[in-house]
Design a protein around this nucleic acid. Structure first.
Lengths: 222, 222
DNA sequence: CACCATACGGAGGGATGCCTCCGTTTGCAA
DNA sequence: TTGCAAACGGAGGCATCCCTCCGTATGGTG
């Protein structure tokens, strides 16, 4: 797995001292109980009903952000999830927390697919992962501009994506399939941009994606 | 001074007395003015102070949208422009009007560059125009998601862009420079996506743009 | 079963934004 | 210079959202 280590489980639990929104309370820093964090990101609640509501909120938030963008009303999200507004705030003290949690879910799924593709030939592995990356950006697009890019969560996720995808690119470059003068970040920008606007026609997505991949591919001869 | 003109033309002149934001319709029957309107979009006010404020508002709006996104406060925009909120509403009865006006400005500039490039070799002309297109999308990005895609203004702009760029692509395809299996819309999506996120490093923008253009280019061998 | 820590729901105060309305100012033509 | 239509500014009513607070409900354990 890509996660090298896992210091405290709650990467983005609550904003540290300096931050605004002086809540706190939830997920107290002192909860050093002996749980084995399965990954860096885990921070699900433990009681059954709480966990259920947590999931419902996450789903509702994903939908709401996709539909209404980053300015979706939190009260509407609570309504969609069928819980009270208070419950939303307990789980996600700030709007940022909600963004981050939705985002983290996506990143985890994306990183997992890199492992699944490890056995493929270099170019196929890279192309396959980039295809998966496109669906990731489609979800991310809605909340990207509001994600706090200085947040430690964001940095951690970015590192996880790099760790998952960078090897695939390097391998394809070593084998001569991918052009050598492209950085990993270049590639992500090119491919990620493809979903800037939603596609009505899946066939078109396929065509555009093919063009993007051709742009990444090494040209046959000079 | 000496503004020698004032043809009351325009796609969406100010809403008539009643109130509802019924757009369009204008299309003055006669076009009795002696001047040939250089484009379909013009709808500037005629009195000097009004025109001045109109421009100030447009500039302020462009800035505000770029910074704060589509949900920028209208009152803040009026403040930036140094005019009262009432003035803003007189010129732009709805938020959509403001979006559209900013957008139209950009489209006009983009279309003009197509003419400038007409004399270039096929591929150079296409590539040059697509480079300009990138800067257009950078501005558009902020307001794109809020633009009413059903608006007649949007449709008109889209047509104008097609009319400006499509010939460049066709020419490059006929000359064998651009791949034949790419529609104009495909190309715009690929290139436009490049600016999904702002670039800190101009050199990187150049690299990614090169990759995108390579994806559009016909591959050397068969 | 009984207890209590944990979680829940939603009313309500405060803040902000949207948009209208109207008294005042100003450009410009006679 | 004068008169008036056009444009201006901003107060204020209404709507919405954010977030807190606290009484109530419930899961899980002894």
């Amino acid at each position: 797995m890509t996660n090298a280590d896992g210091p405290a489980s709650g990467v983005g639990a609550t904003t540290p001292g300096g931050g605004a929104s002086g809540r706190g309370a939830t997920t107290p820093g002192g909860g050093a109980s002996g749980e084995a964090p399965s990954d860096v990101f885990a921070r699900r609640p433990k009681r059954a009903d709480a966990r259920r509501n947590y999931e419902k909120l996450l789903t509702a938030a994903r939908e709401a952000f996709a539909e209404a963008g980053v300015s979706a009303s939190l009260e509407d999200i609570a309504r969609r999830a069928g819980v009270g507004i208070g419950t939303l705030y307990r789980h996600f003290p700030t709007r940022q927390d909600l963004f981050e949690s939705v985002y983290i879910d996506e990143v985890e799924a994306l990183c997992r697919t890199a492992d699944d593709l490890a056995g493929q030939p270099p170019w196929d592995a890279l192309a396959g992962w980039l295809r998966r990356f496109v669906t990731y950006t489609a979800t991310k697009r809605a909340i990207a501009e509001a994600l706090n890019h200085d947040s430690p969560v964001f940095a951690t996720c970015r590192k996880a994506i790099d760790a998952a995808g960078q090897p695939l690119l390097s391998r394809a470059q070593k084998s001569g399939d991918a052009r050598p003068d492209a950085s990993f970040d270049d590639v992500l920008r090119l491919v990620g941009g493809v979903t800037m606007y939603p596609f009505a026609d899946p066939a078109q997505l396929e065509r555009v994606l093919t063009m993007a991949l051709d742009g990444i591919r090494e040209r046959p001869e000079g």
